[in-house]
Design a protein around this nucleic acid. Structure first.
Lengths: 142, 142
DNA sequence: CTGATTTTGAAAATCATTATCAATTAGGTA
DNA sequence: TACCTAATTGATAATGATTTTCAAAATCAG
């Protein structure tokens, strides 16, 4: 039970080799319109004829996230989800029905998080800020 | 792979019976200073002499969360964490080292989340807003 | 007290994720 | 080009949290 560890591991370490597998994952992630799980991406790759291994997909996604090429977050059910992203820090507005994801600016929240942490004597704050809802194309259930 | 489900299940359904187990979980949760996992709470209960079953702790915590008596969130590692809470909606500032949790007001963020969702055509927004950092008692590692 | 129904708990089942480890491969080097 | 060596892959086993199963025990209304 390790609970309060930092979100992202330290940066820059060993060199990575270029393999078609890593490229396949990077590319497949790019075609996804929203967040996907490792399992989901592996299934998508399999469907499109790739014989890449599941463990490799997990490793590649973790690497992409470490290198800042992918965003990762936990679904409410605790599954890890990934999405290709720009390098800048940002947050997400995610449709609970179709998974459509909109990157949102949150300067306001960045500032608030930092200010609040400092006020309470906390240092090195990191925050989790994501908004889930139903996009305009998805009728809100009942 | 169910990913985009709502955070909290629907409210008010069948009646729950009163058992010492449920009360034990509610009470034990109240004595915790920060968020705990189901496993952690079960261990704490065992230490204090209770013979309550692990599955029962999971069930009781899920119920408390459904009824609004407990907050639940996912740790960065994907474990579900629980904490007794007041009924009002609020957010948390959590120490990554010792787990100390401070409930914080976030009217500013509530308003921002709602405004942002609406702007993008999203309805029924719910948000995940939690700040992790190191509390003043815990020296920030290097 | 009695019966109907819910709850419990030990153990098995799930399920996502990680670790193992032998075989393969990338990328530099002679 | 051939070779060397460390990094990478992938099938599979292991892990660990959470859920399900189901028979036995407990709750609560009448």
């Amino acid at each position: 039970m390790v609970v309060f560890e930092p979100f992202r591991k330290g940066v820059g370490m060993v060199v990575k080799r270029n393999t078609w597998q890593r490229e396949a994952v990077r590319s497949a992630l790019g075609t996804q319109m929203g967040f996907v799980s490792a399992q989901g991406l592996h299934a998508a790759l399999a469907t499109s004829g790739s014989h890449i291994g599941l463990a490799t997909v997990y490793r590649a996604l973790a690497d992409l996230a470490n290198e800042g090429e992918a965003d990762s977050l936990q679904s409410p059910e605790g599954e890890a989800l990934y999405r290709a992203c720009s390098l800048a820090h940002h947050h997400h507005l995610i449709c609970r029905s179709c998974g459509l994801t909109v990157e949102i600016e949150a300067d306001e929240v960045e500032e608030w998080a930092h200010r609040t942490a400092t006020q309470h004597g906390f240092s090195r704050p990191e925050h989790v800020v994501d908004v889930f809802g139903f996009c305009s194309a998805c009728v809100p259930p009942q």
